[in-house]
Simulated scan of single mutants.
Amino acid sequence: MIVGIGTDLCVVERFEAMLERRPGLLGRLLTPGEQELSLPSQAARFAAKEALAKALGSPGGMRWLDCEVTKSEVGVPSFVATGTVAARIAALGISSIHLSISHDGGYATAMVVCES
């Protein structure tokens, strides 16, 4: 059963400008591994986290760093959730999270479906 869905679109140029205005923000949004990626890939990870928050009902108190976007050996993206994000996932009885991310032409997008 679908528990929640979320989507997000991020303009890479705006994401970059936001990071330039607030230099410490990157360390609060992305894990060290995510920070090593290219700017478009960082924007896609940010979009993925936004989409997940929407799929989880956008509750307050969740920490961005309690969620990391990783890829399998064949490139399939997924989330590794800990702390506040893992607690919300458990509270909603979510057993599976599907993630699709993409970036091209100055945009990054993500779609999330949560199932119980």
Rank of each mutant, 00 (worst) to 15 (best):
M1T: 13
G4S: 12
G6R: 08
G6S: 14
L9W: 06
L9D: 05
L9H: 07
L9Y: 02
C10L: 13
C10Y: 05
E16I: 07
M18A: 14
L19I: 00
L19A: 11
R21A: 15
G24W: 08
G24T: 15
G27T: 00
G27F: 04
R28V: 09
L29I: 15
L29S: 10
L29F: 06
L29A: 08
G33Q: 07
G33S: 08
Q35F: 04
E36L: 14
S38T: 14
L39A: 05
L39F: 00
P40E: 14
S41Q: 11
S41T: 05
Q42E: 06
Q42Y: 04
A44K: 06
R45Q: 12
A47E: 05
E50V: 04
E50F: 07
E50D: 07
A51S: 14
A51M: 05
A51H: 05
L52R: 12
A53C: 14
A53T: 09
L56E: 08
L56K: 09
L56P: 06
G57F: 07
S58E: 15
P59M: 11
L65W: 02
L65I: 12
D66H: 08
E68S: 14
E68A: 14
K71L: 03
S72D: 13
S72C: 06
S72V: 08
E73T: 15
V74W: 03
V74Y: 04
G75N: 06
G75S: 03
V76N: 03
P77C: 12
F79Y: 09
F79C: 10
T82L: 03
T82N: 08
G83Y: 03
V85N: 07
A87M: 05
A87V: 01
R88P: 00
L92T: 11
L92R: 13
L92W: 07
I94E: 02
I94P: 01
S96Q: 14
I97Y: 04
H98M: 11
H98V: 13
L99T: 02
I101F: 02
I101A: 00
S102C: 15
S102R: 09
H103V: 00
D104F: 05
G106S: 12
G106P: 14
T109M: 14
S116Q: 11
S116F: 02
